[in-house]
Amino acid sequence: MKKIPTLFVRFSCAFVVLVLQMSANQVFADSKYTEIAPNYERACAKGDGLSCFNLGGKFLQGNGVRQDDREAVKLFTKACDNDEPLGCTALGWMLEKGRGISKDPIHASKLYNQGCNAGVSDGCFFLGWMYENGIGVDVNEEKAIGLYTRGCRLGGGVTVGCDILLNKN
């Protein structure tokens, strides 16, 4: 399978876009952060996975808070532990890249799979990339194409997998 290095860069950047492209009712604007942050913090403390994921995204980006990868990892972990598949996918990305936590591509692939199985298109795309390039899993072109296809069908913020499929035809 032909590897496309520039797409890897787009994949890495695309996750950052994922955090920012969620619907307006999921992500709060910087100007409103101080007003509603306590609500997200309380909801996260009570086990609301989506609130934990949203806060993790803020810490990942330094958007309205100090940028802190370790805090983002904690919040994505809590989101995933509370059955929020976006949190699992985000934690997988942090593990794959080694941001705020030691690199662990094998664990990352499992988290991407968890997100993909729950309908998170980005989990499918990231896992497809891992199968295409043998990162944390054995190279498997058929699985990679299947995951890209599934991600495209699910829709979502990252379209790189769809681009890869188009380039293969």
Rank of each mutant, 00 (worst) to 15 (best):
A24L: 09
C162W: 06
N169A: 14
C152V: 01
D69V: 05
G146S: 15
E142D: 05
P85C: 04
G134S: 12
T6V: 15
I4C: 01
Y40C: 04
A90D: 00
L75K: 05
S31L: 07
L20S: 11
L18P: 00
P85E: 01
C162T: 06
S12R: 12
H107M: 14
D30I: 15
L86S: 11
E141P: 04
A43P: 00
Q114P: 00
K2W: 04
P105D: 08
G92E: 06
N133C: 08
W93Y: 13
S12T: 14
F125S: 05
S31T: 08
D122E: 13
N63A: 09
E96W: 01
R42Y: 01
Q26P: 00
Y148E: 03
D122K: 00
A144I: 12
V9M: 10
L75W: 02
H107C: 03
N25V: 10
F28S: 01
D69E: 15
K103Y: 03
A45E: 14
T159I: 11
G98H: 04
Q114S: 12
S102V: 13
A37S: 14
R99V: 02
D163M: 06
D163R: 05
S102T: 03
K168C: 00
R70K: 11
G123S: 02
Y40S: 02
N167Q: 14
Y33A: 14
E71Y: 08
S109L: 10
V65C: 05
G155Q: 12
